[in-house]
Simulated scan of single mutants.
Amino acid sequence: MVEIKTPEQIAKMRAAGLVVAAMHKACREAAVPGATTKDLDQVAAKVLAEHDAKPNFLGYGGFPGNICTSVNDVVVHGIPDTQTVLASGDIISIDAGAIIDGWHGDAAITVFVGEGHAAELHELSRVTEESMWAGVAAMRKGNRLVDISKAVEGYVRRQPRPSSGKYGIIEDYGGHGIGSQMHMDPHLLNYVDRRRGRGPKLVPGVCLAIEPMLSLGTPKTHVLADEWTVKTDDGTWSSHWEHSVAITEQGPLVLTAPDGGKAKLAEYGITAAPDPLG
C-alpha cells in the first residue's frame, strides 16, 4: 500500500525536510581534514535539537548514529565513530533524516573533504546528483514508478564512461516511499527491471525518497560484520545523493531542498509546487 498524504501532512514533511537541509549545511562545513565522522554526528545532533526535531536514523533497527557517514568505498549506512578521521582527498556521503510531528524527511549528499580529488571523482558525484534530478523531474502526476527508474538509469548510461569502463548502479539499495515512516512502500530501483512491471501510478499525495548510488566499478556490494556498513565488492569509491519529493496538485515539491527544487526543476522546464511554508 502506498501512503497518500494530505496537503497538511506534506507541509509537516516540508518542515522536516528543511531540518535535513540544515543538517547537511552544517555537516558539509564540518567535513574538514582531521574531523571524525563522530564529530559530524554531533553537529547533526545539535541541529536537530535547535529545531526541536527527532532523528529518524538513531535507533532505527538498532542503528547507533544520528546520520550515516559513508567514506570512499562505503556506499551507505556508514556508522559515525571516533576512529574514522577524514583526510584531504576523501569523499563522504552524509545521509541525514529528521522527524517533525511524526512526519519524516530524508536526504543524502556527497561531500569532498579538503583538496586533491581526481576529476573522475568529481564526475562521479556530478553524474550521481544529476541522475537523481532526472528522477525527480520524472516524478509527476500520471507517470508510473518505473518512469523514475528509467530516468535515473537513462541519465547515467548517457554519460561518458569513466576509465573503469562504466558506472556501477548499486543494485541492492534504492529509493523508497516516505511519510509517517522513513522507509515505506514502494521500493524504487535506480534501474529498470522489467520483471517488476511498471509499478504504481504517481498521483498527488505520493512522497518518495529518490536516491541513486553509483560506484566507479561494480554494482555489487557486501555488508561488514557490524551489520550496517555497505562497501563495494571491488573497493571502488562511490557517491550517494538523495532528496525526498512530494507530488502535489501544483507539481513536484522537493521537500529536502532549501528552494523546494525550483532552480533544478526549471532546467527541465518544470515549475515546482509552491512552498506550503511560504
Rank of each mutant, 00 (worst) to 15 (best):
W237S: 09
R14S: 04
G261Q: 11
K264E: 12
E123M: 11
P274F: 01
S239P: 02
A273M: 05
L188V: 15
T218Y: 06
G235C: 08
K38V: 11
P252Y: 03
I99E: 07
V245F: 03
M132L: 12
V76N: 12
V32S: 11
P186R: 09
P64Y: 10
G78I: 09
D233C: 14
G168E: 08
T218V: 10
W103S: 05
G135S: 01
Q250R: 14
G199Y: 03
G65S: 08
W103C: 00
V75Q: 04
Y167H: 05
N56V: 10
S125T: 02
T221G: 14
T229L: 04
M213K: 15
I92T: 05
S125L: 00
L145R: 11
K46N: 15
T229K: 11
T110P: 02
D275R: 01
G179V: 01
S125E: 10
R195M: 15
G174E: 01
I270F: 10
H117E: 08
P276Q: 11
G154N: 06
R161L: 12
T232H: 10
G175D: 04
K141L: 07
A53W: 02
G105Q: 06
L18D: 13
P160S: 05
G251L: 02
C207D: 05
R195K: 15
V47T: 12
H104Q: 06
L277I: 09
T82N: 12
G174C: 07
A272T: 00
V19M: 11
G17R: 01
G197C: 01
P200G: 06
D147W: 07
L216T: 00
L86T: 09
R126G: 06
L265C: 08
S244P: 01
K54L: 12
K12M: 12
L121I: 07
T82I: 12
M182P: 05
V152S: 09
M139P: 01
H187C: 08
T229N: 13
